[in-house]
Amino acid sequence: MKIVVCVKQVPDTAAKVVVEDGQVTWGDAPLVINPWDEYAVETALLQQEAHSGDVTVISVGDEDAKEALKHALAMGCGNAILISDPGLENADSLVTSQVLAAAIQKIGDVDLAFFGRQAIDGDVGVTAAQTARVLGWPSLTLVSAISELDPVSSSIRVERSVEEGRQVVEGKLPAVVSVIKDIAEPRYPSFMGIRKASRAEIPVWSVAELGAEVSDPVVSWPEISNPPKQEVITEIISGGSPAEIAETLAEKILETKVL
């Protein structure tokens, strides 16, 4: 099995993301691998352990994105590739998916490409499906379990978690799979993995090296603003007895149409 995992470097979930002077900033908060992508890495490693083969992790971004790649290497991925190009500074999900698809094709003979369900910074959640579309592969999104994977017959059966419930879907390999939290608990990097990752020389591919045909972004952010500040008013309801307090509270709730 040849497996690719696509990961993104994002601000830490604890970071306070705000808009300053029209730019999004998270101060000096650390950048981490997108938490959803850790599930994708874990899933890829589990499939590799079950069916042998190798796992390559790739990311589109600047030098900082090497941190995310090293995290995935420390978890157990065999290879890492950074795709970095000044022309990708304003890439939207379409451009990103074209670049990722080109990288997957350049790696060659890939059976499965895993993604997290979305990145916690952009929260768009369509890159996996778009990459599948560009590659012309089946798109199996929001996957909560891989119930069958047969490299010989090149088939895969997964469970998807959708609003209406669970769907069992079958597809042919090669396929793109985006995973959700239920799929498996991500492992911690091992010390051996950490040593390997810290010494890894990660190759950097440019768009030209990929030979990718990349569109202009179709989505841009002409204006960004902070959400309006919410005024929170606290009112302590008092009364002579619990029943009286409860009655006053119920009236307030009905009055404000909270319920």
């Binding site: 995290h71 420390a74 911690y188």
Partner: peptide, 15 residues
């Protein structure tokens, strides 16, 4: 700190 040290920190902190 080296990359190795920072990854050790993150790993132990995660646990």
């Amino acid at each position: 700190l080296t990359d190795e040290h920072r990854m050790v920190q993150q790993m132990v902190k995660g646990f």
